[in-house]
Design a protein around this nucleic acid. Structure first.
Length: 826
RNA sequence: GCCGAGGUGGUGAAAUUGGGAAACACGCCAGCCCUAGGAGCUGGUGCCCGCAAGGGCUUGUGGGUUCGACCCCCACCCUCGGCACCA
């Protein structure tokens, strides 16, 4: 009796053997071509692995295994991004130290990942909470500070009055605190920022050099939001006398003659008390206070209903036509973008138009589409066109007029971005300490400096102190602020008493550069050895989630570029960290909704592996649908791939005693389909079309089962090699049953023979007026007259053509014949 | 509102990119086998008409280009994701 497919025993056996033999170790400086493939390392949450994680890991595992078999020196590493809020919150709730929780979670994750048979090079594991690792995260911060890219500034932050804690944007859901549901307030706080805006242009421009999915590129470009425009100064007058100036940013200087009023954001500096003689000061102040107290949620709720107050007693001068125009304060103008002031052109801007209508302000049309005039106050035109009512510039096209008018009024070209500098401090315990010290004495001595002194490189890492409590303090500071013996230190510059920065870095800090550390994970003299960096970097293929496109992916490109600029990453690695970026779709619950504990629709991968085995699980994750698409989990589908593997198992059991090296007439047909499958699977893996690759293997199995008795060792071993990247354990077991002594994963990947996949005879479709009426078999490459002769010999097809006049015949070699005929009149 | 992805059987989907729509799998139906099955095997399965042979229809909707359209063009509808007063 043939043995059962005991996946559990087989999988455990081989996982142990592979680990002992280190079959997936990456070799530094190997002569083989290198291939660095990367997946986003997980956050080791208490919930353990989600069925979504293995989708990406399996995909790149398939790629990595295939590439190894093709002779590449593959680096496929794994690590843990372990700083973060959930661990800290768990610690607050249970009183267990975050470090202990983290260690436990990493153990669980590691066991789960190992049970799935991924070919990670575990020797290169990195963990972001390891001081030997975050030492270099801190070092990067110091370098940024040294190069003027890290600075401290007062910033409005999200404040939860109930938790008494500052929240990251990601932690605010619909204007409410993610944890307690209280309404989030805005509050000003000193924050560390990184000057990512300095890299904005390069982050856009260099995208042309990399192979990212197009939607990833456009999303990043939109996020950065570069726009070219002009800065133009408007004089402010009071009683006909110039009292001040306001500079505006506009992308449409061509519409300057149509600027009929001006608007300042409530945050605009000119509105500060005492700066101007505003007749209705009280009314204006009231508006400003109200506007600045609004939460984001309120602003969104108000939608496009625009409000504002005119500043009485002062006017602005339109520099183009010297007309006096009113000045408003209105919260539809944002303080944080451009100059915080705009020229309003109601005829050619939707928002200005809406505002002008409400406050009965003049609408002056200055750009005409195709020289057709608009009827005043009823229509607006936001496109470009030909200028009218614009003095000597009338008749010019918008594009040309833009810069001529800018020059005429003494303005200058200006580029603006939506991207803001990156707020890099959190009032949290479980993060990397920011290696800065505040020294009051140094601040007094050097009034230009802010009193911030970097911790000397030699003193890194600044260790996160062990504390008993992680609760936020009453002052809204980081829990670290309460650890006085840690906070109080000596100033590295003057030796006097000083205080450590108590904010920590955000959870993105460790993931900014982890892929560099994989090349040299234990280096204690540099973040990585330059030689190893130049051997492995850049990453050849990086797969991750779309949700990181404008977060981790953008951040790490910025940090990499910086490290490259300062030489910490060698020049020859190039200016971009990732050559290719793909994205996987999310796995949803069985009902098509996002998996979550509260919905109770979470599928546990351990349970699936226990019931069906890691191989069936892997094959299912690859087969379930297109890789880049969101898809609902369906355990029945997993049953299907389990059946597939079980049939593979059975096929080998029945063949075991009668292995052949040659066989009869079926061989040619089998070879053909085998080689077609080699081509299909090889291509599909490279294109990340795993679902069709698996389906090709299923078709091949169906065919092999039909020819069970004719199968040779050659057929069987080719099949196993193609299946090996997807189902590494069962194929290894069966490979050894074929009496091989070494691992199938060290074998050569099969190459298809183009001669074998050629068809000698093809089926040609026969259509009449585009409708299928039958088919004929013909030798491959048959000429039109040969095929037509065959059609004439087919009674059924003749019936379909009977009594019809053929007007035209379309012939596509080896595919179809289409007869175009006149309709029959009855 | 803007940007992006998408809409094909009961379900997940496939279609060499303009050439036989629905491969592969799930589910379902029938039969076989078994003490039994949520196991296995065989066959069937887009929809409509028909006992059948056969015929008609079918890729969100409406137009168009073409001998021929899931595929290209125009207009519209719907779903999902991101951004959202960015001047």
């Amino acid at each position: 009796m043939a043995p059962k497919y005991d996946f559990s025993a087989i999988e455990k056996k081989w996982q142990k053997r592979w680990e002992e033999e280190s079959i997936s170790r990456a070799e530094d400086f190997s002569k083989k071509p290198k291939f660095y493939c990367l997946v986003e390392f997980p956050y080791p949450s208490g919930e353990g692995l989600h069925v979504g994680h293995p989708r990406s890991y399996t995909a790149l595992d398939v790629l990595a295994r295939k590439r190894r078999m093709e002779g590449w020196n593959v680096l496929y590493p794994m690590g843990f991004d372990a700083f973060g809020l959930p661990t800290e919150n768990y610690a607050i709730k249970t009183g267990i130290h975050p470090a202990v929780v983290t260690e436990r979670n990493i153990e669980t994750f590691t066991a789960q990942l190992k049970s799935l048979g991924f070919s990670f090079d575990w020797d290169r594991r990195v963990v972001t909470t390891d001081p030997a690792y975050y030492r270099w995260t801190q070092w990067i911060f110091l370098k940024m500070y040294e190069h003027g890219l890290a600075y401290k500034a007062k910033m409005p932050i999200n404040w939860c009055p109930s938790c008494r804690i500052g929240l990251a944007n990601e932690e605010v859901v619909g204007g409410a605190c993610e944890r307690c549901g209280a309404t989030v307030e805005q509050c000003e706080k000193e924050q560390w920022l990184l000057r990512i805006t300095k890299y904005a242009d390069r982050l856009i421009e260099d995208l042309v050099t990399v192979d990212y999915l197009e939607r990833i590129k456009t999303q990043q470009i939109n996020w950065i939001g570069r726009s070219e425009g002009a800065l133009i100064k408007f004089s402010v007058i009071s009683c006909k006398l110039k009292v001040s100036e306001v500079e505006v940013f506009t992308t449409r200087p061509d519409t300057l003659f149509g600027a009929t009023y001006m608007v300042l954001a409530p945050e605009h500096g000119l509105l500060a008390k005492g700066k101007l003689q505003i007749a209705n000061r009280a009314e204006v102040d009231e508006y400003i206070v109200k506007a600045r107290g609004k939460t984001d949620a309120e602003r969104i709720a108000e939608g496009k209903e625009k409000t504002g107050v005119e500043l009485k007693g002062i006017r602005a001068i339109n520099p183009a036509n010297k007309e006096e125009i009113p000045i408003f304060v209105a919260d539809y103008v944002l303080g944080g973008y451009g100059t915080g002031a705009i020229m309003a052109v109601p005829a050619h801007d939707e928002r200005d138009f809406a505002f002008a209508k409400r406050y009965h302000l003049p609408v002056m049309e200055v750009v005409s589409p195709l020289n057709q005039h608009l009827s005043a106050m009823t229509e607006l035109y936001v496109g470009e066109g030909v200028l009218i009512n614009s003095g000597k510039f009338s008749g010019l096209k918008s594009e040309e007029a833009k810069w001529k008018i800018t020059e005429f009024v003494g303005g200058k070209k200006q580029v603006q971005y939506h991207l803001r500098d990156w707020i890099f401090s959190r009032q949290r315990y479980w993060g990397e300490p920011i290696p800065m010290v505040y020294c009051e004495a140094c601040a007094l001595r050097d009034p230009s400096g802010q009193g911030w002194v970097p911790v000397p490189e030699g003193e890194l890492p600044v260790l996160l102190p062990n504390v008993a409590r992680y609760e936020p303090t009453d002052t809204g500071e980081s829990p670290l602020a309460a650890v006085t013996e840690w906070v109080n230190t000596k100033c590295p510059k003057c030796g006097g008493p000083a205080k450590r920065e108590t904010d920590t870095m955000p959870n993105w800090a460790g993931s900014n550069w982890y892929f560099l550390r994989y090349t040299d994970p234990r280096n204690d003299r540099a973040l990585a050895d330059p030689k190893k960096l130049s051997y492995w970097t850049p990453v050849d293929w990086y797969n991750g989630g779309m949700e990181h496109t404008t977060l981790h992916l953008l951040y790490s490109r910025f940090v990499y570029k910086f490290l490259h600029d300062i030489g910490a990453v060698p020049k020859e690695c190039g200016p971009e960290p990732y050559r290719k970026r793909t994205a996987h779709g999310m796995i949803l619950g069985e009902g098509g909704e996002k998996m979550s504990k509260s919905r109770g629709n979470v599928v546990n991968p351990d349970e699936m592996v226990e019931r069906f085995g890691a191989d069936a699980f892997r094959v299912y994750e690859m087969f379930m649908g297109p890789f880049d698409q969101d898809i609902a989990w369906n355990t029945n589908g997993l049953v299907g791939t389990y059946r597939f593997l079980e049939r593979v198992w059975k096929l080998f059991q029945t063949n075991d005693e009668k292995l052949k090296t040659e066989n009869g007439g079926q061989q040619q047909k089998l070879d053909q389909i085998l080689h077609k499958t080699i081509k299909k699977v090889t291509d599909d893996i490279e294109k990340f079309r795993f679902n069709t690759a698996v389906s090709a293997l299923m078709i091949l199995l169906n065919e092999m089962e039909k020819n069970n008795l004719q199968l040779t060792t050659y057929n069987l071993q080719l099949f196993l090699k193609l299946l090996a990247p997807f189902a590494p354990h069962i194929t290894e077991e069966l490979w050894h049953e074929l009496r091989y002594k070494t691992s199938i994963h060290l074998e050569k990947w099969p190459v298809y023979d183009p001669n074998l996949i050629m068809e000698s005879e093809v089926t040609v479709a026969v259509q009449v007026n585009g409708k299928l009426r039958g088919t004929v078999r013909a030798p491959a490459g048959s000429a039109q007259d040969v095929v037509e002769r065959l059609i004439r010999g087919d009674a059924k097809l003749q019936e379909a053509l009977k009594g019809r006049t053929i007007e035209k015949t379309i012939f596509v070699p080896d595919r179809l014949v289409n007869f175009v005929v006149y309709p029959v009149r009855s």
